[in-house]
Computed example of a mutant assay.
Amino acid sequence: MNVTAIGSATATSPDERALRDLYLEHGPALYSYVLRLLDGDSYRAEDVIQETLLRCWNKRNLTDSEGMAVRPWMFRVARNLVIDAHRTRMARPQEVSHTSWLGDMCAEVDDIDRMLSSMVLHDALEALTPAHREVLQATFFADRTTQQAADDLGIPRGTVKSRVYYALRSLKAALRERGMELGQVVGR
């Protein structure tokens, strides 16, 4: 049974008309009540309303009769459905939403990979000559142009370019010896 079908004018039997009238009269107030109980979860609220109306349909409790008002009964049924759903969720292991556990696990792996890459890079840099380490520090790690590095180091710009070229070549070789490529380390 679909709640939207209840509100349509296609209800033909007296029970269907009574259910539609019941929904139109009490549905908005019941929805607001259930929505508050569920902390604003509109999807679950709609499910609870639908289940409440289904129980009205099954019990043929569609109108006030024999001193029993339908509205308080509907609110009690809805409240009990919310409580039952909460107890069911608490009895099961905690649900994992979406793929957050996978993202968390990948983040941890990425952090470990980044740390290991950093250690390998540091070790490879130690294998370079002091002049090559100095020029890489002044250009790549300090994010400076070759001219800025040349001014800072007090050497000609051409010398900086040459040293960067040979330092990168040596660094690639040192990383390869350690089982990594420069792209694996720099790309992170």
Rank of each mutant, 00 (worst) to 15 (best):
N2S: 12
V3Y: 03
T4W: 05
T4H: 08
A5Q: 11
A5D: 12
S8W: 04
T10K: 12
A11W: 01
T12G: 03
T12V: 15
S13A: 05
P14A: 09
D15L: 03
E16D: 06
E16Q: 13
R17K: 15
A18L: 06
A18E: 00
A18H: 00
A18I: 02
L19H: 02
R20I: 02
R20Q: 07
L22P: 00
L22R: 02
Y23L: 10
E25W: 06
H26C: 06
A29H: 12
L30V: 06
Y33R: 12
Y33M: 10
R36G: 09
D39S: 12
D41K: 13
S42M: 06
R44H: 09
A45M: 03
A45L: 04
Q50E: 13
Q50Y: 02
Q50L: 15
E51W: 01
E51D: 11
E51K: 00
L53H: 04
L54C: 00
L54S: 01
L54T: 02
L54V: 05
C56S: 06
N58W: 02
D64S: 09
E66A: 15
A69F: 10
V70S: 02
P72N: 03
P72H: 03
P72Q: 03
P72Y: 00
M74V: 04
M74Y: 05
F75Y: 09
R76Q: 11
R79Q: 09
R79E: 13
L81D: 03
L81K: 08
L81I: 07
V82S: 04
V82W: 02
A85W: 01
R87L: 11
T88D: 09
R89D: 12
M90S: 10
A91P: 05
A91M: 10
R92V: 09
Q94L: 13
Q94I: 13
V96C: 09
V96E: 14
V96A: 11
S97V: 13
S97F: 06
H98E: 12
H98Q: 13
H98R: 14
T99L: 10
S100P: 00
W101V: 11
G103W: 09
G103I: 15
G103C: 11
C106Q: 14
C106G: 04
A107W: 02
V109L: 11
V109W: 04
D111P: 00
D113V: 15
S118I: 05
M119L: 12
V120F: 02
V120Y: 00
L121Q: 03
H122E: 07
L125F: 08
L125H: 06
E126C: 01
A127P: 02
L128F: 07
L128T: 03
T129N: 12
T129W: 10
A131D: 10
H132V: 08
H132L: 09
L136W: 05
Q137R: 15
A138F: 05
A138G: 14
A142I: 14
T145R: 11
Q147W: 07
D151V: 11
D151R: 10
D151N: 14
D152S: 13
D152E: 13
L153T: 09
L153R: 06
P156S: 01
R157D: 15
R157A: 07
G158E: 07
G158T: 12
V160N: 05
V160S: 05
S162V: 14
R163P: 01
R163K: 11
R163A: 01
V164Y: 03
Y165W: 15
A167E: 01
L171H: 04
K172D: 07
K172M: 00
K172E: 08
K172C: 04
M180S: 00
M180H: 03
G183E: 07
V185S: 00
V186S: 01
